[in-house]
Simulated assay, not measured.
Amino acid sequence: MTELRDWLNGQHPGLRTYKSFRDKALELCATDAEHRALYRLLANLAGHYITAFDEEPLPTDVAKHAYDVFRDLVEEGDRSIGAPVEQQLAALNKIAAAELF
């Protein structure tokens, strides 16, 4: 997860980043069964953004805000790995309820 988080932090907040993130998260979902729910939720969140804004103009401030929120959620997911079960569940619930825009 740390590699994925670090990769995201170095990306531009464009649609291609969300598409690449979704693909990477789904790969991790298939290989890291212990944290499958986390990767699936993050991939779904990225997918929702892709569906909403594919081929649509997006104001820069909306894109920046969505990217900041997404990065914060990825950070929280990364911090939850190895944490007590209650903290992991809280992070999953927060990501599941999140809205990027």
Rank of each mutant, 00 (worst) to 15 (best):
D72W: 04
F101R: 00
S20W: 03
D78A: 12
W7I: 12
A98R: 06
N9R: 14
L45I: 00
N44M: 11
L15C: 01
L45D: 00
R36P: 02
S80A: 13
G10H: 04
C29G: 08
A96P: 10
D54S: 13
E99L: 12
R79Q: 04
P84C: 14
T31G: 11
L28F: 09
A63D: 00
F21W: 01
Q11V: 00
F101M: 11
A25E: 03
R22C: 02
L73D: 09
V62T: 08
D23T: 08
A43V: 04
G10P: 03
A25M: 02
H48P: 02
E55Q: 15
H65I: 10
A30M: 09
L15I: 01
Q87H: 08
L8V: 05
L26A: 06
K24T: 07
G77V: 05
L89Q: 08
T60D: 07
E56N: 11
G77A: 05
D23H: 05
N44W: 03
Y18T: 01
Q88G: 13
K64R: 11
K94I: 06
I95P: 00
E86A: 14
I95M: 10
P13V: 02
E99T: 13
L89E: 08
V74G: 05
M1V: 12
R40L: 14
R71S: 13
A91I: 05
E75T: 14
T17E: 01
L4T: 08
E34F: 10
T17C: 03
L89V: 14
R22M: 01
D78N: 04
S20N: 13
N9T: 08
D6V: 14
G77S: 02
N44A: 06
Q88S: 12
L58N: 09
S20I: 13
R40M: 13
N9A: 11
D72V: 04
D32V: 11
Y49V: 12
L41F: 07
A52E: 06
T51W: 05
A43M: 07
A52Y: 05
R5K: 14
E99N: 12
T17I: 04
H35G: 03
L15N: 01
L58I: 12
L92Q: 10
A25P: 01
G14E: 02
L15F: 01
D23W: 03
A90L: 13
F101D: 08
R40I: 06
F53N: 05
L100R: 14
G77R: 02
D54E: 09
